[in-house]
Design a protein around this nucleic acid. Structure first.
Length: 700
DNA sequence: TCAATCCGTATC
DNA sequence: ATACGGATTGAC
């Protein structure tokens, strides 16, 4: 009767497909491939593709995922048995396994690292209790019939089936389709082919758009309607937003569009049990739609029909863990591999989104100028002149006269006023004395920066000192150090408007919304609360702090943040005003005045092409101890022409080298070469590790 | 000629 | 970490 025996009885391989191909949880680059094991007969049922297993690997027990069962192995030597099947729950679908491999390849990382991002840690109790939906869910039956907006247009015609295969071509962007009725969504009707896009999704077609939303747009509803359209075609959908506040808004909109029990939301603040429970609801097909922050790009919905991302320019989409994938890139890869539709929506437009438009990977969708003008606030630039005689109250807040008077009028009209103030603490940077353009290196066009107050400016990329600076825009030879991060206090503002309530929203304490009554709302970028009925005025102050960051995305980022604040203002017709304190001749300021993020993005992208920056090129950053870096560099063999910039000091006794290849097509070759070099080093157990990052967003 | 030992390499 | 194969060494 005793079952405790030291020696395990001889195990028999399963009769049917006895070989298990396993992705082991080992992130050494030279071991980044599947390993074959034998499935013991008594585990033959449990060992399903996608399940978690435990195997003996190089003498120790490690976790892994069973990728597939096979009849035979290519391995020459003897196969070991699986130690055990941890659980028969298939948590890694073929779709996600393929996506993870593609992401690892693109970022020169390992499958194991990506799988750690993609599949949450197991929680046994959630798994067994999971057959009963938790309280945030309705009955599983609801999942099959999304209610509300999504029901119309669900009848797909058969002739669409063939078009689903050519997702790689550009042809599947929304085209007006006769016949099918649009799901009820007035909001989408404001965009050319907006309804046609929803119809295409509702018919299960992989339509892809870059949507530039209107000022004041209730974007959570537009995204929710797109998700509902995909769900009505019986397809799954995934949408991501930058942070928890946006997720709350999207969650409410999705609940309104789909009803309860059809979606789950995933975010970092969930505990391990709840996170795993929701993950399982998606992977088991109990919900069709998953929304979430960054990590939700890997959510395992079944029959994926649509991926969506809101405001892809936000830095929060950059994953801080190896191999540092960007959520947009993961989603686009996923849409491509799965033949799913894509929705890249934002008020602004990133250079990456612009590239999708220009390569015709996605169709551009933006409302016509008359509609934009009808919805946009009136935007005016101002210098920082303060009329001390006429507006003495403005002096104490260091507010330009126009800004002060605009705010005063809005408050008098009974509306709240938003003041966007940059956060403190950006890197000291340098710009041209003449034209204020950010200063760039003569040799590689990298950004110049000051490492300390009295040092000579040097290039952040290649490390050359900027001894012979010449401005690329105006030819000037003089540099100025920008004083950045000036920050106004709420008290200063309050003094300028005595008797007006002042509320702040920022790092410590973010407000979701404010009532539609007179108040000054001081917010840092990204923390601007919505106002009931819209703000009467929005003031964008201290704009130099954003524009002169030692960061070549500064212009794009500044415009993104200004638009995010300005879109909260009422339309001009209802008195909405925006005042930006800054030089009206600068391109990002111009783009705000004209409310034209698309033209700005096109210009930005063409500038990146000229200067050789991503996304027009592919760039890899290698960071590590100098000796390890030298060793690594010697092992990289690139058939393509490439630039090597640096090394430059990168803190903690480390250095950084940049490797740039001239085309996006060469990016795959670059990543493969880096992975191969890292594999040689890890096989040798070489001293010191080198961190590889592809197109790191904080660099340019 | 064979066994003990060392070293590099693969890890199923 | 540990196991293995091939090379090297030393004793008969």
């Amino acid at each position: 009767m005793s079952t405790t025996r030291r020696a395990r009885p001889a195990r028999q391989p399963a009769g049917d497909r006895p070989v298990a191909r396993v992705a082991v949880d080992v992130s050494l680059p030279h071991l980044d491939r599947p390993f074959d094991y034998l499935v013991p007969e008594d585990q033959a049922e449990a060992a399903v593709p996608g399940c978690r297993v435990r195997v003996r690997f190089a003498g120790r027990l490690v976790d892994g995922f069973l990728l597939e069962r096979a009849a035979e192995s290519d391995h020459e030597g003897r196969l070991a048995f699986l130690e055990r099947v941890v659980s028969p729950e298939p948590v890694l679908s073929n779709e996600i396994a393929g996506l993870a491999r593609a992401v690892a390849d693109r970022y020169a990382g390992t499958l194991a690292d990506v799988l750690r991002l993609a599949v949450p840690p197991r929680h046994g109790r959630a798994e067994t209790a999971g057959t009963k939906p938790p309280d945030d869910a309705a009955t599983p039956d609801d999942a099959a019939t999304p209610g509300g907006a999504a029901t119309a247009g669900g009848a797909a015609t058969q002739d669409d089936a063939a078009t689903q295969d050519d997702a790689a071509t550009a042809g599947e962007a929304a085209t007006p389709a006769a016949g099918a009725e649009a799901p009820s969504a007035e909001g989408w009707a404001a965009y050319p082919a907006g309804r046609a896009y929803l119809n295409a999704l509702a018919r299960g077609r992989p339509a892809r758009v870059v949507l530039t939303v209107l000022p004041g747009e209730e974007w959570p509803h537009r995204i929710a309607e797109a998700l509902a359209a995909a769900a009505s075609a019986g397809r799954g959908a995934v949408a991501v937003v930058p942070d928890a506040r946006d997720l709350d808004r999207l969650d409410a909109a999705v609940t309104a569009a789909l009803g309860p029990g059809v979606h789950v939301s995933l975010h970092a603040a969930l505990g391990p049990a709840e996170r795993y429970r929701r993950f399982l609801r998606a992977s088991r097909g109990e919900v069709a739609v998953v929304i979430g922050t960054r990590a939700a790009v890997f959510a395992p919905v079944t029959r994926l029909g649509l991926v969506a991302i809101w405001d892809d320019g936000d830095d929060l989409y950059a994953e801080p863990r190896a191999p540092y994938p960007h959520a947009l890139q993961v989603l686009l890869t996923r849409a491509q591999l799965a033949g799913a539709g894509a929705l890249v929506a934002a008020t602004a437009r990133s250079a990456e989104a612009q590239l999708l438009v220009e390569t015709r990977w996605a169709r551009e969708m933006a409302a016509g100028r008359p509609t934009v003008r009808r919805r946009a606030p009136a935007v005016a630039p101002t210098g920082d002149d303060i009329d001390r005689e006429r507006d003495p109250a403005a002096v104490s807040a260091r507010l330009p006269s126009l800004a002060w008077r605009t705010a005063r009028d809005a408050l008098a009209a009974g509306a709240p006023v938003l003041v966007q103030v940059p956060r403190r603490g950006y890197l000291p940077s340098v710009s041209c004395v003449e034209c204020h353009a950010p200063a760039r290196c003569r040799h590689c066009a990298g950004p110049l920066e000051l490492r300390s107050a009295h040092a000579v400016a040097a290039c952040r990329w290649c490390g050359r000192p900027a001894a012979d600076f010449a401005c690329r825009r105006c030819g000037g030879h003089l540099l100025r150090a920008a004083v950045v991060g000036a920050r106004r206090t709420a008290e200063e503002m309050g003094r300028a408007f005595p008797g007006t309530p002042v509320r702040t929203s920022g790092r410590d304490g973010v407000l979701d919304s404010v009532p539609g009554e007179p108040a000054l709302v001081i917010a840092t970028p990204g923390a601007e609360p919505a106002a009931e009925g819209g703000y009467g005025a929005v003031l964008l102050v201290d704009t130099w702090a954003l524009l002169t960051r030692a960061d070549l995305r500064a212009g794009e980022e500044a415009l993104r943040r200004w638009l995010a604040a300005a879109t909260l203002a009422r339309p001009a017709q209802r008195g909405g005003r925006v005042v930006i304190v800054g030089d009206g001749a600068l391109a990002p300021v111009q783009a705000l005045l004209r409310w034209d993020p698309a033209t700005f993005a096109a210009r930005e992208l063409s500038e990146r092409r000229e200067l050789g920056f991503p996304p027009a090129t592919r760039l890899a950053s290698l960071t590590g101890p100098p000796a390890a870096l030298t060793d690594m560099m010697a092992l990289i063999s690139l058939p393509e022409p490439s630039d090597v910039l640096g090394p430059v000091p990168a803190g903690d006794d480390e250095e950084r080298v940049l490797v740039r290849v001239g085309s996006r097509a060469a990016g795959g070759v670059l990543a493969a070469a880096l992975h191969a070099a890292a594999a040689v080093r890890s096989a040798r157990k070489a001293e010191g590790s080198v961190r590889i990052q592809i197109d790191p967003r904080d660099l340019w």
